[in-house]
Design a protein around this nucleic acid. Structure first.
Ligand SMILES: [Zn+2]
Ligand SMILES: [Zn+2]
Ligand SMILES: [Zn+2]
Ligand SMILES: [Zn+2]
Lengths: 132, 132
DNA sequence: GACAAGTTGACAATGGTTCTCAAGGACGGT
DNA sequence: ACCGTCCTTGAGAACCATTGTCAACTTGTC
């Protein structure tokens, strides 16, 4: 059960730095890359804090986290509605895409086989026009 | 460049053991679990060899490798036609699913944005009836 | 059997991610 | 401003899946 009281989230220098760094990217980046950008901007935030903040933002639905082919987590600030990604495998350029039909399809497939608590991952990789 | 000569693949006791272990599962398992099953069956194969063999089989398209929500690689021998998976996140029970409409959708989305050389990943996770 | 080349396994190394815990900061009440 | 409480942070250790190392061992071939 989720308790009704949420622990307050305090606006700290560190959390602001992570949010700013995220805004500086429009493609998916690893926690390390985000940490590096923060450092390069003169700020100093512990790597563990970067991970904590990214996880919290992901839980809150304010950033998307997915895994690259090596299983590493990569992150990107996204619109807050459910969507998927069309990602250039050369330069990382990302397009958010929606597919109501796909959402319906995954749900019905799962129901058909009696699975509950459904989640799904769907990513499309390709080469963007600029990288052709 | 891929050379035209392929290095010969020798049928060894270890590779047979991995294949047998794979056949003993009908769901996705980690390399560690596969290694454990081999041990339990009395055979002895180094973990590194399990990884090497699984990777080779995946490259050859004889097993599917995907990543669970923690980013760990999990493996399963699969049919050789293009399909996706509905996976129980508790016990790993897997259903292969096909969705021609989804295949069409990903293709058209990609074309619409000028992306070429399209590939995609789509996995559905949930809790199976037995694990409810 | 002898040779060249592929294969193995114990172990070390790698590297992303999480954990630990003492020190620091935010906030409400006074 | 001062306190007390609870949240937050960071340096480093710990974790752990995966990969690299390399000498010993197989396998296929002649
Ligand atoms: Zn591109
Ligand atoms: Zn979706
Ligand atoms: Zn199950
Ligand atoms: Zn598909």
């Amino acid at each position: 059960m989720t308790s009704t009281e949420r622990s307050p989230v305090r606006p700290t220098r560190q959390r602001r730095a992570v949010a700013t760094a995220l805004a500086g990217f429009d493609d998916f980046r690893s926690a390390q890359e985000i940490h590096d950008l923060i450092s390069r901007q003169g700020d100093s935030v512990g790597l563990a804090t970067v991970y904590r903040t990214l996880s919290a933002l992901a839980d809150a639905g304010e950033v998307d986290m997915l895994r690259n082919e090596d299983g590493e987590a990569i992150w990107r600030s996204c619109s807050d509605t459910h969507h998927h990604h069309l990602v250039c495998r050369t330069c990382g350029a990302t397009v958010e895409v929606e597919g109501p039909a796909v959402e319906r399809w995954t749900g019905s497939i799962a129901a058909e086989h009696g699975y509950a608590d459904i989640s799904h991952t769907l990513e499309i990789f390709g080469t963007c026009p600029a990288c052709r």
